[in-house]
């Protein structure tokens, strides 16, 4: 019995016999083939031992998983999800900000364009109004001068025509004096001058 594998054949002192796997003894024992006790998975005398080690190993695993590993992985995944959503939100916010800035730029550009056009229009209007005013002033002045000149001319003509009567009177008086030897009186001269249509 002492040569047999202690786990395939239960015996009171089997625990004193330890057969390391792969030892020559284990091989000869198998090679002899004399005993194939039970099918190893059904050897009930190993059950308690296996259950104890299973409980210890699985208990340790459960403790490690529930206390350390899973909370950590969960934290990592949660942290990543939070960061992703935060980054996406930030990107969304920045995009809307950029959109708003673009719209504001467009608006101010249009406003500036409109303003520039208005200023140009105003300037054009002001300039043309000023030019018109100047032109009108000039025209009025010119007209005034024209009128003044015409008046002067007319005055001069009238004056000249008046002088013509005097000259004609003097001339006529001189002619009459030369011809008759005596100066005609003023009344006669006036009468004769008034009777001459070219002098009136």
């Amino acid at each position: 019995m002492a040569e047999k594998n202690p786990l395939t054949t239960p015996s009171p002192n089997a625990d004193t016999k330890i057969v390391p796997p792969g030892s020559p003894q284990a091989h000869t024992e198998q090679a002899s083939g004399g005993h194939h006790a039970a099918f190893p998975p059904f050897e009930s005398h190993t059950f308690l031992s296996q259950l104890i080690w299973l409980a210890l190993a699985f208990g340790l695993l459960y403790y490690l998983m529930s206390k350390i590993a899973l909370p950590r992985i969960e934290a990592i995944l949660g942290d990543r999800a939070r960061r992703l959503s935060a980054d996406l939100d930030e990107a969304q916010r920045m995009k809307s900000e950029a959109d708003a800035a673009g719209a504001a730029y467009e608006t101010s550009l249009r406003q500036a364009q409109a303003k520039a056009q208005a200023i140009a229009q105003d300037t054009r209007n002001a300039l043309s109004a000023e030019a018109d005013a100047k032109r009108k002033t000039l025209e009025a002045e010119l007209n005034q001068r024209l009128a003044a000149s015409e008046a002067t001319i007319r005055a001069r003509t009238t004056e000249a025509m008046g002088n013509v009567r005097a000259i004609a009177g003097e001339t006529a008086a001189a002619i009459v004096e030369r011809l008759t030897g005596q100066a005609p009186d003023q009344a006669t001269l006036d009468r004769a001058l008034s009777a001459t249509p070219a002098l009136n």
């Binding site: 594998n5 202690p6 786990l7 395939t8 239960p10 009171p12 089997a14 625990d15 004193t16 016999k17 330890i18 057969v19 390391p20 796997p21 284990a26 099918f39 190893p40 998975p41 050897e43 005398h45 190993t46 059950f47 308690l48 031992s49 296996q50 104890i52 080690w53 210890l56 190993a57």
Partner: peptide, 24 residues
Amino acid sequence: QFELQPLVSLGHIGNQQIAFTQSA
């Protein structure tokens, strides 16, 4: 291949052999 190889045998409880096997 399914045989349990005790690495350290720890004694008995009744007919149950308590051993640290390669399975453990």
